[in-house]
Amino acid sequence: MSIIKPKDLALTEEKLAPGHRLCPGCGEPTTVKLVLKASDEPVIVCSATGCLEVSTSIYPYTSWNVPWIHSAFENAAATASGVEAAIKALKRSGVYKYDKVNVLAVAGDGGTYDIGFQALSGAFERYHKIVYLLLDNEAYMNTGIQRSGGTPSYASTTTSPDGKVIPGKLQTKKQISRIMVEHEPAYVATISAAYWQDLMQKSKKAFAADGPAFLHSFTPCPRGWRHADNLSIELCKLAVQTCIFPLWEAEKSDGKMVYKLSAPSKQIAKNPDKKKPIVEYLKLQGRYRHLFKPEEKTELIKQIQDWVDTEWNIILERCGEK
């Protein structure tokens, strides 16, 4: 696929208009705008309940320059299934003007890892031709930073606070994208706004895929992660550089899912010295402050590092880099 130039980006229509009410530094609109720009065909968006939905659609205003529907929290994939099926049937009856319309379901980590997982799993098993975009900011941010299945270990949230006895979330982050690969859909990829060309190319692949596609976006939340507004893209980079969020894709080839490491992560696989320690990523975020103050909790930080290493090795293995 050809390289996308910044000029091309500037010249394509904004499908999510400015003036929405998402926070400064929020990772969501950057990702959504880029993903939408990657669609060459008309696109219909099905949003789950969440920050993106409430901040872009406060009646009588809307930021959406594309057809957009929100119905509930746990059902973005099911709603998208209905839209896809309707278009298929309407095309068959000859009343539909467009030959190809992309259907994009968008949900956060709560709406994907937890409450929306059943609908997502069902839609992928039924093989609807939809693109599911997970905006993973690692907690229920819209309701006020509660822990989700996507919250990583020892992150402090309002339902996994760092207390005198318990140092944040005790469990590890669910590996949702690998679970989605096991559904054997057409396409799965992890994306990060810091690597926007990679993001857009993967989005194009997702829209072109001959079946369901899953895009997992690493999506910083300055409010929830308690970091400075201007550090969001920096954190996107660091997440890839520390390998806590590696960039990879998996495509169906001859009926088998084939994993492939994407360039930014591949560089690290080739030069392991470039892999930064996780502490560099953790220390920029207030949600991990209790790991450093009043004294550094070396053992807990080591546990996080070990987890990152283990998961990174799994990805390297899957991608045939080991």
């Binding site: 529907i69 509930a72 746990e74 099911a78 299934s81 209905g82 099926a85 309707a86 309407l90 609908a119």
Partner: peptide, 22 residues
């Protein structure tokens, strides 16, 4: 015909379909 994985999705899918003009 969409043999959904739950009734919640049956209605969600119907909503998506009806909103798309079906």
């Amino acid at each position: 015909f969409i043999p959904v994985e739950s009734e919640h999705s049956a209605m969600s899918t119907s909503i998506g379909a009806a909103a798309a003009g079906a």
